[in-house]
Amino acid sequence: MTPLVPLLLAACLALPATAHAEIYMKVEADGTVMLTDEVRGSGYQRMTPGPTAAPRAVAPSTRGQPGGAAASDWGDLPFAPLVAAAAAEHDVPEALIHAVIHAESNYDAGAVSPKGAVGLMQLMPATARELGLRDARDPAANIRAGTQYLKRLLGMFDNDIALALAAYNAGPAAVARHGRNAPPYAETRRYVPRVIEHFERLRSRRGSGVS
């Protein structure tokens, strides 16, 4: 993952996923990101959809089994029970979480990027703090926080998976600055299709009955 999320943007990410208030973003000429729930003036873009929207072209996530144990269609993959639990908690498809982990760290819980992103889902320190993550190298905590962040990004960008992944890689402010389009960064242009391709591969494997 790339840049630090500005404080105002981090405040938006802290909003409950079920919040009904609309959040609007405006990027000033100097790059400052302004967030508000009450638009005054021009240049603001809506950042949150209605609370019942479902991610576009995404299979429903696996729900928890009785007693709180999460089932998984990808039980042979590393950290599958932790991914299944996070998927059920935040209503994000397991296949998408696995695809992000695969691209970010290749399932290395101790991975640290040159830019300082840590753990399985490669969370930047500022993002981890905003999500309440104390030990980014702890697999369960990292997956849970990373999935929470991914869920927020899906909400911010109208449940568009490609845009949410672009924001995960380049930062949501970068997506906003480019008119709610994936920024033209070489890394992001490689990252988004790579994750989506792996996501679709996992989904097709599930459909074939192979676990």
Rank of each mutant, 00 (worst) to 15 (best):
V175S: 08
P3H: 07
A59D: 09
V39L: 12
R205F: 01
A11F: 14
P114E: 03
S208R: 15
A173V: 12
G75S: 15
G209K: 10
A59I: 05
A174S: 15
A117V: 02
E187V: 04
V210I: 13
G68F: 09
A86W: 00
V5W: 08
A84G: 04
P184N: 06
V83H: 09
A87Q: 09
A54M: 12
R189P: 00
L163D: 05
A182P: 07
N142M: 01
D108Y: 01
R63Y: 06
A19T: 14
P139T: 01
E22I: 02
V39Q: 04
G179I: 10
N106V: 02
D158R: 06
A111S: 06
R129S: 13
P49T: 14
I161P: 01
S113Y: 11
R203F: 00
S208C: 04
P51E: 12
R177C: 02
A84C: 03
E38Q: 15
T188S: 10
V195H: 04
G64I: 05
A145E: 04
P183N: 05
D135G: 00
G171A: 06
G207F: 13
E187C: 06
I161T: 13
H178P: 07
P193D: 05
G119T: 07
L123E: 05
L153Y: 10
M25N: 04
N159M: 15
K26W: 00
P114F: 12
S105E: 02
M47G: 03
P183D: 00
T52C: 11
R189D: 02
V118K: 11
V210L: 08
A54V: 15
S208K: 12
A140L: 04
D108M: 08
Y168E: 09
N169R: 08
R189C: 01
T18K: 11
R129N: 12
A59Y: 03
M124V: 06
V27Y: 09
N106S: 13
P93S: 08
P93G: 02
A69Q: 14
Y107A: 09
G116F: 05
A19I: 10
T52E: 14
P66A: 12
